[in-house]
Write a protein that binds this DNA or RNA. Structure first.
Lengths: 336, 336
DNA sequence: TTGAAAGCGCTAACAT
DNA sequence: ATGTTAGCGCTTTCAA
């Protein structure tokens, strides 16, 4: 082990080489404007020549700014989150931050534990589809910067896709096809969206005179979709709205297995417009949304929190428009 | 701002409360065995009572161990990586580490830049489907701990899924169906796997007396699959092996668009067995592999590098078995 | 505008 | 087995 051969240069090396104080180098590097432009350029040149790179750990320690944000999703294998992850990753990178990805595995405990564990080593948390209780989220938000995705909570910044308008669109689409009854195959009880979607569907159904029932809850997976399909088929309804596309695709398959046909015997609608929803057969009618944008905006409002929202009293709650993607899984209601 | 109200307790607080030296607290917390069990328990109790939590940044600075690993994938929206990501996340968490996820967007430049940027703030890098040159990877490995996924390079730990056996299986499957000619729709030139897969296919084809041609390169996306389908159809071959499932699914769709049928007019095979490959119609015949395991093992060998491999002279190169999943996209060769 | 110096919270020799 | 004491590389008052 040589002495100073293999080590990365520090601001001290740059300072010595530039014949300046380390503090000046520090300013030149991260606080331009508080240093004369001549010295700044000099410092930059020397730093470049020496191959200097900031040690982000070292700078995070005294400043408290880690330039890192964490994104937690409830199930990392659900394609629904891909867009969100990508959007978040992009926005984080654009802001000079690093993204940490965590899987909470549908468990509020795992969620809380993992967030706690990261604690001081991130600037904030973006939590997608949190399964925690409102109280726990509020407690969390008291200690850390938090932005929510697919969930709203007073006082916290959030980004969701419009489900009020979306569910209305779904119901009107089904009504136009002659359906008079629908079932909602509910998602997990802890998922905020489960109630929201049900509420939207029920309300819209009422307005158009369609009957609506809520069944479940089910795990939001393809596997659970099989069970959901059986339940839907048994309900006598002509249209089934699944909590998400994973379930809906599982339903499609199960219905076929049982020798029945979509949409002739049952129309099926999903949520999210995930990768795969257009390659199933029939392709899935589903409520899509700009999920990359969701991820991007969530990181954005997390990072921007300090500047305005928080001091302005309340956080911004963003609602992005949803759009119904009509494909082959919905069709005319069977005549009974 | 109160003085010591809102701040998280440090080892100094614990030390004062436990009437010990900070260093003893530090040992008790992270080096048990170098402290009497009585004091250790005492420290633990006090730490617990005070709600102490380590500041991982602060501990990383002097020790150099960040307990963080980075995973880079070439395209974060490719479902192929979901399993790898999940496996890596699990193994990292099991080892008490945090996972940083990076998207290199098929670009060697983005890849190099992002890796460089993280530099000292991670314990090592797992790079999946690197697009960098061997030389650049070697240079990188000289400065950081690196483990490769879906790529082999002498001296570096790696995890791949067996493509030699896999391509043989594909070819024999096609031969058994009476195919006498195949085309390989190649992936990106910079992808190590592109050449490997072609080599395996060509060699296996030679052995069974099948003709084989390589076409492309194509981007490994569904969109590029359309182009690949046209080229494959124009080639006169009866079987097409796509570089990955994304391309293969894109091909399936394009073939149908052109009014031809899979597998009657053309058999199609993919690689990876991604989510979605079994819901397309026809469902895709594809070479699968234990990708969660791949992610897990890659993190594992990265983290274990210091202990044995490195000193034992060379890194372990793990090859996991692949398996051909036969579905509807392959069938008897058309009679010409 | 620049420099000096005191930390950030923890680890790791080196003593004891 | 435990305490003392330097740092790790950077930021940030406070002076000059």
């Amino acid at each position: 082990m040589a002495r100073d051969e293999r080590k990365r240069p520090t601001i001290y090396d740059v300072a010595r080489e530039a014949e300046l104080a380390p503090s000046t180098v520090s300013r030149a590097l991260s606080n331009p404007g508080r240093v004369s432009s001549r010295t700044r350029e000099h410092v930059l040149a020397v730093a470049d020549r020496l191959g200097y790179q900031v040690n982000s750990l070292a700078s995070a320690l005294p400043s408290g700014r880690t330039h890192t944000v964490a994104l937690f999703v409830s199930d990392i294998t659900n394609p629904h989150f891909f867009g969100i992850i990508r959007g978040a990753e992009h926005q984080a990178r654009a802001a000079g931050c690093t993204l940490i990805l965590g899987d909470t595995e549908e468990s509020p405990e795992v969620e809380a534990r993992n967030i706690e564990r990261l604690g001081s080593s991130v600037d904030g948390f973006v939590v997608a589809a949190s399964r925690m209780t409102d109280e726990d989220i509020e407690a969390l938000a008291g200690k850390h910067r938090v932005a929510l995705i697919s969930r709203q909570l007073a006082g916290l910044p959030s980004v969701i896709v419009d489900h009020v308008d979306g569910t209305r669109e779904i119901v009107e689409h089904l009504a136009a096809l002659g359906h008079e009854s629908l079932v909602y195959l509910a998602g997990p009880r802890r998922a905020w969206l489960t109630d929201q979607r049900w509420r939207g569907l029920a309300q819209a159904a009422r307005r158009v005179g369609m009957s609506a029932r809520r069944l479940g809850p089910f795990q939001p997976t393809m596997r659970a979709g099989a069970n959901a399909a059986d339940v839907a088929l048994g309900s006598g309804a002509t249209a089934a709205v699944a909590h998400n596309d994973l379930m809906a695709i599982g339903m499609l398959r199960r219905v076929a297995e049982r020798g029945m046909r979509v949409p002739d015997d049952l129309s099926v609608v999903g949520f999210d417009d995930i990768f795969g929803s257009d390659i199933s057969s029939p392709a899935l009618t589903t409520l899509g949304g700009p999920f990359e944008e969701v991820g991007r905006l969530a990181v954005d409002s997390l990072l921007g929190m300090r500047e305005k929202s928080r001091e302005a009293g309340r956080a911004e709650q963003i609602v992005l428009p949803s759009h119904l993607v009509i494909r082959g899984s919905t069709g005319k209601a069977p005549v009974r």
